[in-house]
Nucleic acid binder design. Structure first.
Length: 498
DNA sequence: AGGAGATTAGATGCAGTCGA
DNA sequence: TCGACTGCATCTAATCTCCT
């Protein structure tokens, strides 16, 4: 029997819900085998509640919202592209997934398609992750998102149900949480419904540390090692290298089992080198590996990250932020197609610089000649090679002040609009109330009117009116008096007759 | 100390197996 | 069905050991 067979057997034998929590396991020394086979304590409800509590504190609410809107934007864009029928590996727009930079390891390492699906399922769930646990997605779209172009879904379905059995472990302080990545899977026709465990949702929804992975890259790679290496590099992109990590750590990150490639030479030839080669040809980033040795043994690895010179994706990978996009649309009147054309043809920094200059010259300083064609002006400015479109530092400062003021004005405008709307609603409510009061008053018999009026005059609501008009109970009812109307309506409201 | 020979990490080719 | 994965055999060269 080959190693592969044993692996599958192990996978089938692992009792899915048993290894839930290992409270005192030393995170650094516990081997995968120990965690998988030993009977460990079951996660109690209190534990789960405490964990959820910690992950749902109020200061995280803002984080949830910003993460969700970012997720929503990317998800929405991917849906549009899916409908357009462009293969995901060829789309120009960047589709980013915000991922937790947290050590997560799988008891049985995920295969290539499963790793891709893992990201895809989080990507789909991201926009509503803090409030929902069950998510739905069409298999067509899912298949597109991971670039799985097979006509029948048999393999996709098999991968999903296998994923259901895959256990993942998340260190949390000195605890280890062990959970399924997806709890329930229901495939209804060509729609997949899946449930992500509550605390995984929370963890993903508001990560302490995060990094972005590209869904285009996710779909693109042919080897799981390349995908894993890509994510490892993405996670460390901010510092330009992964830093030296032990071989064990690296093997774990790559999803190399303890029995696989026990010799470094094999690991190098079959995992590291091929992954680097594929990354170089397909990826937007690339790395070179440094060996750390003890005597002549390679014991640790460091990947130094470089921008991939082969990749045409570099200029594409950056994209206009929403504020800039809005500015191009609203200030310069460019349409979506024109913006897309510009964004594809020029580096993002150039576009930002030029839009600054144009904004300063034509909007802030209101140059005499009105601009007839913003698009051609913008394009020729972008193409300019004689440095005719530059701002001095003081102009830049002026511009940023202008932007700030305008933003505040917009904010103020927004507040005023909201205030007006509120006032309008209050007026409408008052009007509504006074109409109801009149209706009620008209249909009331004469005798009851006097009784109600006397009750009003002696009530807290009518007190001021009675004192102001020097009235006493028994006086002639006058509900049309402007001073009386509002407080009389309040009184009736309290009696719940209107 | 230094060199010959032994040992072993690492590289490579090939072939069988299995996953996508 | 094709190509990726994996194991085996063998080669190369770095490093160690032991002896003079």
């Amino acid at each position: 029997m080959g190693v592969r067979n044993r692996k599958i057997e192990n996978q089938l034998l692992v009792p899915v819900a048993v290894a839930r929590l290992a409270p005192s396991y030393p995170a650094t020394t516990a081997s995968i085998a120990e965690l998988g086979s030993d009977a460990v304590e079951v996660l109690t409800e209190e534990d789960e509640a405490a964990l959820l509590e910690r992950l749902s504190s109020t200061d995280m609410a803002r984080l949830y919202l910003s993460n969700e809107s970012e997720g929503k934007r990317n998800y929405q864009q991917s849906l549009d592209l899916f409908r357009e029928g462009v293969p995901v590996t060829q789309v120009k727009e960047e589709l980013l997934l915000k991922k937790v930079s947290q050590r997560v390891r799988f008891i049985n390492p995920l295969k290539l398609l499963q790793s891709k699906l893992h990201n895809a399922l989080i990507f789909v769930a991201r926009p509503t992750m803090s409030t929902q646990q069950v998510f739905s997605v069409s298999l067509d779209y899912l298949s597109w998102l991971v670039d799985h172009n097979v006509n029948d879904y048999a393999y996709l379905k098999a991968s999903l149900s296998e994923m259901q059995q895959a256990l993942m472990q998340i260190p949390d302080g000195n605890r280890w949480f062990s959970t399924q990545m997806i709890q329930d899977v229901l495939i209804e026709g060509t729609t997949l419904h899946y449930k992500i465990p509550a605390f995984l949702c929370r963890l993903y929804a508001a990560p302490d540390r995060y990094h972005h992975v590209s869904m285009r890259m996710n779909a693109r790679f042919k080897s799981k090692y390349t995908l894993n290496l890509y994510e490892l590099l993405r996670e460390n992109l901010w510092r330009g290298e992964t830093g030296y990590m032990t071989l064990d750590e690296f093997r774990e990150r790559m999803g190399v089992g303890p029995e696989e490639y026990t010799e470094f030479k094999r690991l190098s030839m079959r995992v590291i080198q091929p992954a680097l080669v594929e990354l170089e040809s397909l990826g937007d980033i690339f790395a070179s590996v440094r060996y750390g040795r003890e005597k002549r043994f390679v014991t640790s690895l460091n990947f130094v990250i470089v921008q991939n010179p082969n990749s045409k994706l570099l200029s594409e990978s950056a994209y206009l932020d929403p504020g800039r996009y809005k500015e191009l649309r609203e200030e310069f009147g460019l349409n979506q197609k024109q913006i897309k054309e510009i964004a594809e043809a020029f580096p993002i920094e150039r576009i930002e610089a030029i839009s600054d200059v144009l904004l300063y010259r034509y909007v802030l300083n209101k140059q005499k000649n009105p601009v007839k064609n913003w698009f051609s002006l913008f394009r020729s400015a972008l193409r300019d090679e004689e440095d005719r479109y530059l701002l001095t530092n003081s102009e830049k400062a002026e511009l940023s002040l202008f932007r700030e003021k305008r933003q505040q004005a917009a904010l103020l405008e927004d507040n005023q609009r909201r205030e007006r709307e509120l006032e309008r609603r209050r007026t409408a409510a008052r009007k509504h109330q006074s109409n109801r009061m009149d209706d009620y008053w008209v249909q009331l018999p004469e005798g009851s009117r006097q009784e109600l009026w006397d009750g009003f005059l002696s009530s807290p609501e009518g007190k001021h009116f009675r004192q102001a008009r020097k009235l006493s109970p028994g006086s002639r009812p006058d509900v049309t008096h402007p001073l009386a109307r509002a407080s009389f309506a309040d009184y009736l409201n309290r009696l719940q007759v209107i």
